[in-house]
Design a protein around this nucleic acid. Structure first.
Lengths: 232, 232
DNA sequence: CGACGATTTGAATAGGATCAATGGGAGTGG
DNA sequence: CCACTCCCATTGATCCTATTCAAATCGTCG
């Protein structure tokens, strides 16, 4: 593992405060690997053998049922995923695939479970991470149950604008089909939702989005920090 | 606090393994209170001042947006809720109200956050609890995104049957309006979903449900442990 | 008994999904 | 460099799902 990668991983909230010897205990059995775009990393229902850390690239976490599939979230550097399955020594509830060429650090679940019992600081970090992940999922449920597809899109765009530093123009972080899946709709319906939002100052050109009537869009979207703010 | 209540709380997975002195440290500032049916215990957006433990009764956790509201889960004895908000020292993402006359133990967030740093066993239990709560929310999202309303109801009934020990007849645990809200539909739509399921052997008389064609219902519902089993 | 709320049913509407067809790029191989 | 292919995105038409509004029934509780 390259020193700069090691450093990035160590800087993660989850690993930043743990003892050095604990951290080093995790490393021997771990490995960092590069995967091309579109590779399935884990499959739902399989035992959680490794904690995964996205060091570079992007990973889609999605769920399937018969023919259908739906994206639940996208993990970006540097973050972990399927932490809960690892800690409970359970099966994965979601599958994961790379959205682009990515480098993934894989740490054996066994090591994680051992170290968490020995290093209090690591346990604390774990608690914070899990609590945040839980809250994210609560927000996701609220988003799905209390809003229509158009409202979800409107709020998503407002959020992207904030993450772009408040710029009126920004670009979608993923292909539209992925955005549609994340927001819980079909690609066709996303196209129509964009068309619906046009009178609210939403202009789309490929991946580029421009918001020209922020007030109008916000009046429609009714954004709420208790759903849209991923920091709290 | 009555000795038998203390014992029940102590027996909770979250509190069972912690040190006695830690447990006792939580108690002085805590109080157990009885609330009648329909009382709002917490309101979304408020700071999380207390961890709540349902000692007796039932508490609905729900989310609101403008006029709408939607139930996310029901907390039954003996379980805790809003643990994540407490640990992160954040605001509540959901509101809570008693569904029936209930007794609630309230433990100051401050105490929880202090003790979790001092008692490793408590921290471990917290991790397990949070991981389980996270996984429950993932299942909820999958249920919402991958199934229609009729499918959600069908699977819910199959689950209730299992929880009733496999009996063909059982009763709904809540009023139908609450079931509808939990499953993400309107009361009218729940009525119609029940009607849709009649050919699949679902007979309803008030709160009483009887399933007479289990195979047919399962073929429709396509139950999945990765969504419906709350144990894994 | 009367009021209220829960539930059901009907009718109309809105929200989304599906199916089908077309246009556009990006990447590949000649 | 160009043609070809494939997949994404858009649009139209249609169908299905679910919500809304309204009204009727039912049961419970005071």
């Amino acid at each position: 593992m390259r020193p700069e990668d090691l450093k990035a991983v160590r800087a993660l909230p989850l690993f930043a405060s743990m003892r050095q010897d604990s951290f080093e205990q995790l490393l021997p059995a771990s490995f960092l690997q590069r995967f091309p775009k579109g590779v399935t990393l884990i499959t739902e229902g399989d035992p959680a053998d490794f904690l995964h850390v996205v060091v570079e690239g992007a990973v889609e976490l999605y769920a399937t049922q018969k023919r259908q599939e739906s994206a639940v979230l996208v993990a970006r550097p540097v973050s972990t995923f399927i932490l809960a399955a690892v800690l409970r020594d359970a099966v994965y509830l979601m599958s994961a695939r790379t959205l682009e060429s990515s480098r993934i650090l894989m740490i054996p679940s066994e090591s994680i479970r051992t170290v968490v019992l020995e290093d209090t600081a690591f346990a604390e970090a774990m608690i914070a991470e899990l609590a945040q992940a839980f809250r994210f999922m609560v927000k996701t449920v609220k988003n799905l149950k209390l809003r229509t597809a158009v409202e979800r899109l409107a709020n998503y765009l407002l959020r992207l604008r904030i993450e772009a530093g408040g710029a009126a123009a920004f670009s979608l972080p993923y292909e539209k089909r992925m955005v549609a899946s994340l927001l819980g709709m079909t690609p066709e319906n996303l196209s129509r939702a964009f068309a619906t939002l046009k009178p609210y100052g939403v202009n789309v050109d490929g991946p580029q989005v421009t918001l020209t009537k922020l007030e109008d869009l916000e009046r429609l979207a009714k954004p709420s920090p208790l759903i849209d703010d991923h920091e709290i």
